[in-house]
Design a protein around this nucleic acid. Structure first.
Lengths: 147, 147
DNA sequence: GCTAGGGCTTCCAGTAACTGGAAGGTCAAG
DNA sequence: CTTGACCTTCCAGTTACTGGAAGCCCTAGC
């Protein structure tokens, strides 16, 4: 199929799809007329890229994730280890999104537009370090539990 | 506190913090010596930025999210509507991450490194359109259920 | 006081990941 | 056979940082 179809099916702009080809994330065939020709497999890769990019994985991380497909030379152990690392990252992202959601929900419920200088939700926000950056020297009783 | 502390507490590099100031996401005070001086409130904003940026929200979206704090001029209805939209986006992101995680997990379990040309997980992947791009013309019996 | 070190400042240049636009080839419809 | 949609390449611009230079501030040791 042509790039327009691939774009529609993957949710990625054609520009971006060509860019991904430039940087070696896929190599679609070419038709007689020189147009790019995408297989279903290509579309799946694109869709996977669309999803993982929109969720905050870098292109290089996406390249790793994609290497879990198709790269039949890789050894089981490598694949499994890589996938395990990425699964951990995904779980962390899910937890962070949930905490972000809680923050926002709480905010909607408690801060309904009255003119207060400091928003009480900020404490809440600070209270959940989201498993970050290994043992950061912060967290030293930083917040007075006011309000 | 100085930018170094703010950096450590927020998990953002000092460079990025200055950049966020440049584009108007916060306005820390200045000490006598000209150094930036961050309040706890500033640190919370930074932490919030760190989280939401790492989860795939654009800087402009983060600006909107941040406007839910502190902008006491905004009307309740506006705030609520905006937050509702963002909550929807967050829920969608969580769902996508979960589906991504399922895909990866499934992949780890089923594709343990044997030399097959197409990965069976692709079916799985394609089967979950992840609420995307309205009614895409895809899904037309695309994959033969081999593997 | 003097100097070395680390942290801070601004400014400018570079990178990553697109994104828009020009200039032109291809192709089905009228 | 022309119009319009879609495709091509190439080059320039944008977003969101990131690195590095040049220089000020501040504490510590001699």
């Amino acid at each position: 199929m042509n790039i327009g179809d691939a774009s529609e099916r993957s949710g990625l702009p054609a520009k971006t799809i060509r860019y991904y080809e430039d940087i070696g994330l896929l190599k679609p065939g070419r038709s007689e007329n020189g147009y790019r020709d995408y297989s279903m497999n290509d579309v799946h890769r694109l869709k996977f890229l669309q999803r993982s990019r929109s969720l905050g994985f870098s292109v290089e991380e996406c390249r790793q994730l994609l290497s879990l497909y198709g790269d039949t030379q890789r050894e089981s152990a490598d694949v499994k280890a890589l996938a395990q690392i990425k699964l951990g990252e995904i779980d962390r992202k899910i937890a962070e999104l949930q905490s972000l959601r809680d923050t926002l929900r709480h905010l909607v419920r408690n801060c309904h537009g009255d003119a207060r200088p400091d928003c009480p939700i900020l404490d809440e926000l600070a209270g959940k370090p989201a498993a970050g950056a290994g043992k950061s020297a912060a967290q030293d009783k930083e917040l007075s539990p006011r309000h």
